[in-house]
Protein backbone atom coordinates (compact mmCIF):
# COMPACT_ATOMS: atom_id res chain seq x y z
CA UNK A 1 0.00 0.00 0.00
CA UNK A 2 1.19 3.48 -0.88
CA UNK A 3 0.04 6.37 1.23
CA UNK A 4 0.77 10.02 0.52
CA UNK A 5 -0.02 12.16 3.53
CA UNK A 6 -0.20 15.94 3.15
CA UNK A 7 2.61 16.06 0.66
CA UNK A 8 3.77 19.48 -0.54
CA UNK A 9 6.51 20.27 -3.02
CA UNK A 10 7.67 23.70 -4.06
CA UNK A 11 10.01 24.62 -6.90
CA UNK A 12 11.92 27.86 -7.26
CA UNK A 13 12.55 30.50 -4.64
CA UNK A 14 10.61 33.48 -3.27
CA UNK A 15 9.04 35.42 -6.15
CA UNK A 16 9.30 32.56 -8.63
CA UNK A 17 7.95 30.06 -6.15
CA UNK A 18 5.81 27.40 -7.73
CA UNK A 19 3.75 24.88 -5.75
CA UNK A 20 3.90 21.68 -7.76
CA UNK A 21 2.14 19.69 -5.05
CA UNK A 22 -0.10 21.35 -2.51
CA UNK A 23 -1.07 19.27 0.50
CA UNK A 24 -1.78 16.11 -1.45
CA UNK A 25 -3.11 13.02 0.32
CA UNK A 26 -3.72 9.79 -1.52
CA UNK A 27 -3.99 6.08 -0.77
CA UNK A 28 -3.25 3.45 -3.37
CA UNK A 29 -4.00 -0.15 -2.45
CA UNK A 30 -1.66 -2.98 -3.46
CA UNK A 31 -2.23 -4.40 -6.90
CA UNK A 32 -4.38 -1.50 -8.10
CA UNK A 33 -3.99 0.28 -11.39
CA UNK A 34 -4.14 4.02 -10.96
CA UNK A 35 -4.20 6.74 -13.56
CA UNK A 36 -2.89 10.14 -12.55
CA UNK A 37 -4.57 12.48 -15.00
CA UNK A 38 -3.86 16.13 -15.58
CA UNK A 39 -2.61 18.70 -18.02
CA UNK A 40 1.04 19.42 -18.40
CA UNK A 41 2.30 21.45 -15.47
CA UNK A 42 -0.51 20.20 -13.26
CA UNK A 43 1.88 18.40 -10.95
CA UNK A 44 1.14 14.84 -12.07
CA UNK A 45 4.76 14.07 -12.86
CA UNK A 46 5.86 15.58 -9.57
CA UNK A 47 3.40 13.30 -7.81
CA UNK A 48 5.03 10.31 -9.45
CA UNK A 49 8.53 11.54 -8.62
CA UNK A 50 7.58 12.13 -5.01
CA UNK A 51 5.85 8.75 -4.66
CA UNK A 52 8.92 7.00 -6.06
CA UNK A 53 11.41 8.82 -3.85
CA UNK A 54 13.15 10.47 -6.82
CA UNK A 55 12.03 13.83 -5.51
CA UNK A 56 11.98 14.98 -1.92
CA UNK A 57 8.87 16.92 -0.94
CA UNK A 58 9.53 19.36 1.87
CA UNK A 59 6.36 18.46 3.78
CA UNK A 60 4.29 15.34 4.30
CA UNK A 61 4.91 11.61 4.47
CA UNK A 62 5.15 8.96 1.82
CA UNK A 63 4.43 5.65 3.46
CA UNK A 64 5.05 2.52 1.43
CA UNK A 65 4.29 -0.76 3.18
CA UNK A 66 4.37 0.99 6.54
CA UNK A 67 7.66 2.83 6.07
CA UNK A 68 8.05 6.54 5.42
CA UNK A 69 10.59 6.67 2.62
CA UNK A 70 11.23 10.37 3.25
CA UNK A 71 12.95 9.32 6.48
CA UNK A 72 15.39 7.09 4.57
CA UNK A 73 18.92 8.13 3.76
CA UNK A 74 19.57 8.63 0.01
CA UNK A 75 21.43 5.30 -0.20
CA UNK A 76 18.49 3.46 1.37
CA UNK A 77 16.01 5.18 -0.96
CA UNK A 78 18.13 4.07 -3.90
CA UNK A 79 18.13 0.48 -2.67
CA UNK A 80 14.42 0.62 -1.94
CA UNK A 81 13.75 1.90 -5.44
CA UNK A 82 15.93 -0.71 -7.08
CA UNK A 83 14.22 -3.54 -5.19
CA UNK A 84 10.57 -2.52 -5.21
CA UNK A 85 9.92 -0.07 -8.05
CA UNK A 86 10.32 0.35 -11.74
CA UNK A 87 9.72 2.95 -14.40
CA UNK A 88 8.50 3.24 -17.95
CA UNK A 89 8.89 6.55 -19.75
CA UNK A 90 7.30 8.24 -22.70
CA UNK A 91 10.57 8.39 -24.58
CA UNK A 92 11.60 4.85 -23.56
CA UNK A 93 15.12 5.73 -22.38
CA UNK A 94 16.51 2.46 -23.61
CA UNK A 95 20.26 2.49 -24.26
CA UNK A 96 20.50 2.30 -28.01
CA UNK A 97 24.08 1.15 -28.09
CA UNK A 98 23.47 -1.77 -25.75
CA UNK A 99 21.87 -5.07 -26.70
CA UNK A 100 18.36 -5.86 -25.48
CA UNK A 101 19.93 -8.34 -23.09
CA UNK A 102 22.16 -5.72 -21.49
CA UNK A 103 19.35 -3.17 -21.36
CA UNK A 104 17.23 -5.54 -19.36
CA UNK A 105 20.21 -6.59 -17.27
CA UNK A 106 20.74 -3.06 -15.90
CA UNK A 107 18.18 -3.13 -13.04
CA UNK A 108 19.49 -6.55 -11.97
CA UNK A 109 23.04 -5.23 -11.91
CA UNK A 110 21.96 -2.21 -9.90
CA UNK A 111 20.09 -4.41 -7.43
CA UNK A 112 23.19 -6.63 -7.16
CA UNK A 113 21.57 -9.81 -8.44
CA UNK A 114 24.29 -12.46 -8.90
CA UNK A 115 25.37 -13.09 -12.48
CA UNK A 116 24.18 -16.70 -12.63
CA UNK A 117 20.60 -15.73 -11.67
CA UNK A 118 20.36 -12.96 -14.22
CA UNK A 119 20.06 -14.82 -17.47
CA UNK A 120 16.89 -16.73 -16.61
CA UNK A 121 15.21 -13.56 -15.38
CA UNK A 122 16.19 -11.55 -18.44
CA UNK A 123 15.00 -14.22 -20.86
CA UNK A 124 11.74 -14.52 -18.93
CA UNK A 125 11.16 -10.76 -19.04
CA UNK A 126 11.92 -10.53 -22.76
CA UNK A 127 9.59 -13.47 -23.40
CA UNK A 128 6.84 -11.72 -21.47
CA UNK A 129 7.00 -8.77 -23.87
CA UNK A 130 7.54 -10.92 -26.97
CA UNK A 131 11.12 -9.86 -27.63
CA UNK A 132 12.86 -13.18 -26.95
CA UNK A 133 14.06 -13.19 -30.58
CA UNK A 134 15.81 -9.87 -30.13
CA UNK A 135 18.04 -10.89 -27.23
CA UNK A 136 21.23 -9.86 -29.00
CA UNK A 137 19.88 -7.03 -31.15
CA UNK A 138 20.92 -3.51 -30.35
CA UNK A 139 18.11 -1.44 -28.88
CA UNK A 140 18.61 1.28 -31.48
CA UNK A 141 17.59 -1.15 -34.23
CA UNK A 142 14.15 -1.70 -32.69
CA UNK A 143 10.92 0.05 -33.69
CA UNK A 144 9.23 2.46 -31.29
CA UNK A 145 6.79 -0.15 -30.06
CA UNK A 146 9.57 -2.68 -29.61
CA UNK A 147 11.59 -0.12 -27.68
CA UNK A 148 8.73 0.41 -25.28
CA UNK A 149 8.32 -3.36 -24.94
CA UNK A 150 12.01 -3.52 -24.13
CA UNK A 151 11.50 -0.78 -21.55
CA UNK A 152 8.70 -2.84 -20.03
CA UNK A 153 10.92 -5.93 -19.97
CA UNK A 154 13.53 -3.86 -18.18
CA UNK A 155 10.86 -2.60 -15.76
CA UNK A 156 9.52 -6.04 -14.85
CA UNK A 157 12.72 -8.05 -14.82
CA UNK A 158 13.28 -7.63 -11.10
CA UNK A 159 9.63 -8.34 -10.14
CA UNK A 160 8.81 -4.86 -8.81
CA UNK A 161 5.88 -4.28 -6.48
CA UNK A 162 5.16 -0.88 -7.98
CA UNK A 163 5.39 0.04 -11.64
CA UNK A 164 5.37 3.71 -12.64
CA UNK A 165 4.53 4.55 -16.23
CA UNK A 166 4.95 8.14 -17.39
CA UNK A 167 2.89 8.60 -20.60
CA UNK A 168 3.81 5.07 -21.74
CA UNK A 169 1.95 5.42 -25.04
CA UNK A 170 2.66 9.10 -25.70
CA UNK A 171 5.22 8.42 -28.44
CA UNK A 172 3.40 5.54 -30.10
CA UNK A 173 0.68 5.21 -32.70
CA UNK A 174 -2.72 4.04 -31.46
CA UNK A 175 -2.37 0.39 -32.49
CA UNK A 176 1.07 -0.03 -30.94
CA UNK A 177 -0.04 2.02 -27.94
CA UNK A 178 -2.96 -0.30 -27.36
CA UNK A 179 -0.71 -3.34 -27.44
CA UNK A 180 1.53 -1.74 -24.82
CA UNK A 181 -1.48 -0.90 -22.67
CA UNK A 182 -2.72 -4.47 -22.85
CA UNK A 183 0.73 -5.71 -21.87
CA UNK A 184 0.83 -3.40 -18.84
CA UNK A 185 -2.65 -4.27 -17.59
CA UNK A 186 -2.11 -7.99 -18.11
CA UNK A 187 1.02 -7.81 -16.08
CA UNK A 188 -0.77 -5.76 -13.41
CA UNK A 189 -3.52 -8.34 -13.06
CA UNK A 190 -1.30 -11.40 -13.28
CA UNK A 191 1.37 -10.32 -10.84
CA UNK A 192 -0.66 -8.09 -8.54
CA UNK A 193 1.80 -5.31 -9.23
CA UNK A 194 0.62 -1.82 -8.38
CA UNK A 195 0.53 0.12 -11.64
CA UNK A 196 0.61 3.91 -11.57
CA UNK A 197 0.17 5.52 -14.97
CA UNK A 198 0.71 9.23 -15.45
CA UNK A 199 -1.17 10.36 -18.53
CA UNK A 200 -3.31 13.01 -20.11
CA UNK A 201 -5.08 10.46 -22.30
CA UNK A 202 -8.65 9.98 -20.93
CA UNK A 203 -9.10 6.69 -22.82
CA UNK A 204 -6.07 5.15 -21.13
CA UNK A 205 -7.16 6.54 -17.77
CA UNK A 206 -10.55 4.91 -18.10
CA UNK A 207 -8.97 1.48 -18.30
CA UNK A 208 -7.50 1.88 -14.81
CA UNK A 209 -9.18 0.80 -11.59
CA UNK A 210 -8.83 4.29 -10.22
CA UNK A 211 -8.37 7.78 -11.62
CA UNK A 212 -6.81 10.68 -9.80
CA UNK A 213 -7.40 14.04 -11.44
CA UNK A 214 -4.89 16.68 -10.57
CA UNK A 215 -4.51 20.33 -11.44
CA UNK A 216 -2.52 23.18 -9.92
CA UNK A 217 -0.88 20.75 -7.54
CA UNK A 218 -4.13 19.69 -5.95
CA UNK A 219 -6.19 16.55 -6.31
CA UNK A 220 -9.49 17.66 -7.81
CA UNK A 221 -11.29 14.37 -7.91
CA UNK A 222 -10.76 10.69 -7.36
CA UNK A 223 -12.88 8.17 -9.19
CA UNK A 224 -12.86 4.40 -9.40
CA UNK A 225 -14.05 1.35 -7.56
CA UNK A 226 -11.58 1.08 -4.75
CA UNK A 227 -11.06 4.70 -3.81
Amino acid sequence: MIELRNVSKTYGKKKNEFRALDDVSLTIPDGASVAVVGKSGSGKSTLMHAASGLDRPEAGEIVIDGEDILQFKPRAVDRFRSETMSFIFQSFFVQGNETCYNNVSLPLEIAGVPLRERRAKIVKALKAVGLEEKLKSRARDLSGGQKQRLAIARAIVNDPKILFADEPTGNLDSVTGEAIETLLFEYNKKHKTTLIIVTHDPDLAKKCDMQVHISDGKIQKKTGAKS
Binding site: S52, L54, P74, R75, D78, R79, F80, R81, S82, E83, M85, S86, F87, F89, S91, F93, Q95, L106, P107, I110, A111
Partner: peptide
Amino acid sequence: TSQIGLMKALGMPRRD
Protein backbone atom coordinates in the same frame (compact mmCIF):
# COMPACT_ATOMS: atom_id res chain seq x y z
CA THR B 1 22.30 12.79 -19.46
CA SER B 2 19.14 10.74 -19.93
CA GLN B 3 21.01 7.49 -19.46
CA ILE B 4 22.37 8.77 -16.16
CA GLY B 5 18.88 9.87 -15.15
CA LEU B 6 17.47 6.46 -15.94
CA MET B 7 20.17 4.66 -13.97
CA LYS B 8 19.50 6.88 -10.99
CA ALA B 9 15.75 6.36 -11.31
CA LEU B 10 16.36 2.62 -11.27
CA GLY B 11 18.12 3.07 -7.95
CA MET B 12 21.76 3.30 -8.97
CA PRO B 13 23.53 5.16 -6.15
CA ARG B 14 25.52 8.32 -6.85
CA ARG B 15 28.69 6.55 -5.91
CA ASP B 16 28.19 3.93 -8.60
